[in-house]
């Protein structure tokens, strides 16, 4: 069994977001890049499945320029066996899925984070499954290998659902898939450079969206204190300013 884990290279979740070029592009100056937290959990689950036996190889794949390689090497340090980088800047979900489809054909299980913490797109996993004609389950919070099938736990409204599904499968995973991401051991960090990181050329594809403009959320308004005796003022504020009454 071969597992492919999709890895998005995203800004650290504590990054102070800024835009440049008249708010048309994200300012990545001084940004620290990390593995998308959902992908990191997916990789952790892949490691657990391999340790339980029955998995021959874990590959990680990313669409991005050379600057994303430290993120892939961290995944190798955590324990992936090899890595693939499709050498082109990620444009939009369709473009990324199209590139990944070229390298993902030979895997039995593909684990994709439910979204990336930068654009929260929620799209690549589903698109990839469609392009490859693989089965696909979203909102997966548990997965195990059961002979030639997969047992998958899916979160549904008000509960969860247990599915048995044949491969090849794209499992779009969310929180709960693994307890917490693994910290790479030093031996893994040293070995990461010796593991294969294959750079493949991009295929011809066109993005379906373009970014027009970015906007930061409005700053939080200051808290207004109303005297406990003054219910009338509170009602006026709720009606005229907060507009909730």
């Amino acid at each position: 069994m071969k597992i492919l884990v999709l890895i998005s290279n995203v800004p650290d979740t504590t990054t102070k977001v800024r835009f440049t070029g008249d708010n048309t592009s994200f300012d990545d100056a001084g940004v620290q890049w990390i593995i998308n937290p959902w992908d990191e959990l997916a990789l952790t689950r892949a490691m657990e499945l391999k340790e339980a036996g029955g998995v021959d190889k874990i590959t990680v794949a990313n669409v991005g320029e050379k600057t994303t390689e430290p993120t892939l090497r961290k995944a190798l340090a955590v324990g992936a066996d090899d890595a693939i980088r499709v050498d082109v800047p990620a444009r939009d979900a369709y473009f990324v899925a199209r590139q990944l489809a070229e390298v993902a054909k030979d895997y039995d299980l593909i684990l994709a984070g439910i979204e990336a913490s930068d654009y929260n797109g929620n799209a690549v996993g589903g698109m990839l499954a469609e392009m490859l004609d693989f089965n696909s389950v979203s909102a997966v919070s548990g997965i195990s290998i059961d002979g030639d099938k997969f047992t998958v736990n899916r979160e549904i409204d008000g509960g969860s659902q247990l599915l048995s599904i044949t491969g090849p499968l794209v499992a779009i995973v969310q929180k709960g898939i693994a307890k917490e991401p693994r910290i790479p051991a030093m031996r893994g960090i040293m070995m990461a450079r010796k593991k294969p990181l294959n750079v493949v050329a991009a295929v011809d594809a066109h993005e379906k969206t373009s970014y027009v403009n970015y906007e930061l959320p409005a700053p939080k308004a200051a808290c207004k204190m109303v005297d406990e005796e003054n219910a009338k003022e509170l009602i006026t504020l709720l009606h005229e300013e907060a507009k909730v009454l």
């Binding site: 430290p70 090497r73 961290k74 340090a77 917490e180 910290i183 790479p184 051991a185 030093m186 960090i189 040293m190 990461a192 450079r193």
Partner: peptide, 16 residues
């Protein structure tokens, strides 16, 4: 890159 990864690993373990 390795030194930074070790720094991050130590930070993650300590803070988590």
């Amino acid at each position: 890159e390795e030194q930074l990864m070790i720094q991050q690993a130590a930070r993650d373990y300590a803070q988590r």
